[in-house]
Amino acid sequence: MKDKKTNWPVTILLILGSLIILLPIYLTVTVALKSPEEMSRPLLSLPQDWRFDNFIEAIELTNFFNALSNSLIVTVSVVILTLMTNSLVAYAIARNMHKRFYKFLFYYFVSAMFVPFPIIMLPIVRQTAVWNMDNLLGLIFLYVVYQLSFNVFIYVGYIKSIPKELEEAAIVDGAGPWKVFWKVIFPLLSPMNATVAILTCLYAWNDFMLPLVIISDQEQATLPLVQYIFQSEFSTNYNLAFASYLLALVPMIIVYLFAQKWIISGVVRGAIK
Rank of each mutant, 00 (worst) to 15 (best):
L142G: 02
G157A: 03
T75I: 11
T62M: 12
N135W: 11
F55T: 03
F230S: 06
L136W: 00
P9G: 01
H98S: 14
V89H: 03
Y107M: 11
L189M: 10
L68D: 06
V29F: 07
F106M: 12
I154T: 02
S216H: 11
P116D: 08
Y256G: 02
D3H: 13
D207K: 05
Q147M: 12
M133S: 12
L240S: 03
A221Q: 10
E167Y: 04
S244A: 11
I80R: 04
A243E: 07
Q231S: 15
S232V: 15
G157Q: 01
V10Q: 01
V110D: 09
T28Q: 11
I120K: 12
S161R: 06
H98T: 15
L46R: 10
W205N: 01
E57N: 11
A197C: 08
V180A: 08
D53H: 14
L105P: 03
P118S: 06
D3S: 13
D173H: 10
E219D: 14
L188S: 14
L43V: 13
V156Q: 02
I185H: 06
V130H: 12
I25H: 01
L22K: 02
L202K: 01
E38P: 06
E38V: 06
F258H: 10
D173F: 08
W8T: 00
L33I: 04
V130R: 10
I254W: 07
Q231K: 14
N135E: 13
A241S: 12
G176M: 08
W262Q: 11
F208H: 04
R269D: 11
L202P: 02
E57F: 12
M84Q: 10
V78L: 04
D3F: 15
V268T: 13
L199M: 13
F106A: 07
L225I: 08
I140Y: 04
S190D: 13
D207N: 11
L225A: 06
R269N: 13
K99V: 12
D49K: 15
S190P: 01
N70E: 02
V156N: 01
I21Q: 00
Y155T: 05
T128Y: 02
D53Y: 15
N96Y: 11
V255L: 06
A94Y: 00
F258Y: 10
L139S: 00
A197P: 06
G17E: 00
G176H: 10
I25P: 00
S235R: 13
A221T: 09
P118W: 09
F230L: 12
D173K: 07
N66H: 08
R95S: 07
A170F: 08
V268L: 10
L189R: 04
I20W: 11
L189K: 01
T195K: 00
P251M: 05
K5S: 14
I263T: 01
V79R: 01
I93W: 02
Y238K: 12
V267L: 12
T236N: 15
S77R: 08
E60C: 13
A32I: 06
D3T: 15
V213I: 09
F117W: 14
S71G: 03
N96E: 10
I73K: 07
F55Q: 04
Q231E: 14
I80A: 07
T82L: 03
K160C: 09
I264Q: 05
T82R: 03
L19E: 05
L246Q: 05
I185K: 05
F109T: 04
A271I: 09
N63R: 04
L212I: 07
